[in-house]
Simulated scan of single mutants.
Amino acid sequence: MRNFKKFQYSVVAGFILVISYIAISVILSNNQYLQQTITDISSILINFTAALCLFYASYKSKIYGKQIQYAWLLLALV
């Protein structure tokens, strides 16, 4: 049940991020330069967060064996 709560929080956070991104895009639709800057910064943050999640998956998969852990670690590094 605890993992399901974490999943629910992750889904809610994802929806909030997507809605925020869409709202910012609509608000800044007249300012192309500022919209491009926000898009560039948000893509860096999204990629950094994805890499952190993959490192966390590597750390947590240690109990399943070294090969699984190294596979997640390789995905994080690529």
Rank of each mutant, 00 (worst) to 15 (best):
Y59T: 04
L54C: 04
L77W: 01
Q36R: 14
T49G: 13
L54E: 03
T49C: 08
V78F: 10
V26W: 07
F7H: 10
Q36K: 15
V11W: 09
G65N: 00
Q67K: 10
L45F: 13
I38V: 15
S20F: 12
G14Q: 04
F48D: 03
Q8F: 09
L77I: 03
I22H: 01
L74E: 02
Q32L: 11
A50V: 15
A13E: 10
S42T: 15
I41S: 09
S61F: 03
L75P: 00
Q36G: 06
F55A: 00
Y21K: 08
A50E: 11
A71Q: 05
F48T: 12
A57E: 02
S25I: 05
S20A: 15
T49E: 03
T37Q: 14
S10N: 13
I24C: 06
Y33C: 01
S20W: 06
T37H: 07
N31E: 04
A57N: 07
L45H: 02
S20I: 05
F15S: 13
I46W: 07
F4V: 12
K66R: 11
S42I: 14
I68H: 06
Q69V: 02
I68D: 05
Y9G: 06
K5Y: 10
V11M: 14
A57C: 09
K5E: 13
A50C: 10
A23H: 02
Q8N: 10
A76C: 00
G14E: 03
R2G: 07
K5V: 15
V78I: 14
L77V: 04
V12K: 14
Y33W: 08
F55P: 02
I24V: 14
Q67V: 06
Q32H: 08
Y56G: 05
S42H: 08
